[in-house]
Design a protein around this nucleic acid. Structure first.
Lengths: 130, 130
DNA sequence: TCACAATTGATATTATATCTCAATAATGAT
DNA sequence: ATCATTATTGAGATATAATATCAATTGTGA
């Protein structure tokens, strides 16, 4: 299965980068069809998956809501605003040795972890006057 | 809106406890209809929601897959086996002051956090050591 | 240019969860 | 206990996120 370069994959990656800040597959799709009305939703999902396999992007699975995709591949944590739903990077070191906090693995082999914060973003905190 | 006690809510809670280990709404539903063929799936979801509001159970949102529900209401973290998909409690202290690791909140008001581990459970690894 | 097969677009399907609404039933008042 | 009120249920529809199927298209090396 040799991977081929397609216009669609390039467009998905470009759109992800253009949108910035962790868009979902559907947000990328909605942006894409503005210029390319026949672009297929499944193609967005398929290419996001492939870009993850290639290593160009990272999938960030959210505890609630749709998966989000990130051009920044370094390990870092995320915070989700409970009002507007947007996802932000958290300015905090990645705890690569978090396993040392685990008292007893009970035979479980830990391979990865993720921390997701929730709260209210600066913008939503400022928008009190409804 | 005064809450009423119903047989259905009792059954949902009993079934959750009986199944143990963080069942999903559908797992509870599948178990329930064995004895109560007319039990409605939406009723399971509605009652799980209410039991969360009451405080009898906790919803544990997983980064992938369906929400899971937990009769243990204390704060603790979870690990999901990448092979069998089951969710286990992690034997590790809850980091209530995790906010101290955050360097700059950028105006974000952090209210909650969750850590989800992934890996391979003891059973799927095929050993029994702790 | 050609042949092969990876990829696409269209569509259907699955999984998770919520909503609508008439019928039912839990609760406090009588 | 009976009644009136209304929260709750069951049935079904709908919403959202993601994947599967498959013929047509297209990228790639020969």
């Amino acid at each position: 299965m040799i991977r081929r370069n397609t216009i669609q994959r390039t467009l998905v990656l470009e759109t992800l980068i253009k949108l910035g800040c962790h868009p979902t597959a559907d947000e990328i799709y909605d942006e894409l069809i503005k210029q390319h009305p026949n672009f297929n939703r499944a193609t967005v999902y398929r290419n996001l998956q492939q870009l993850c396999e290639i290593g160009d992007i990272r999938k960030r699975e959210m505890p609630d809501g749709a998966d989000r995709f990130d051009h920044t591949c370094s390990n870092h944590y995320h915070a989700r605003c409970l009002k507007c739903g947007r996802v932000f990077d958290v300015d905090m070191d990645y705890i690569s040795d978090i396993d040392k906090f685990i008292k007893n693995s009970n035979g479980f082999e830990f391979t990865e972890h993720d921390i997701v914060f929730k709260g209210i973003c600066a913008e939503c905190k400022g928008n009190h006057q409804a």
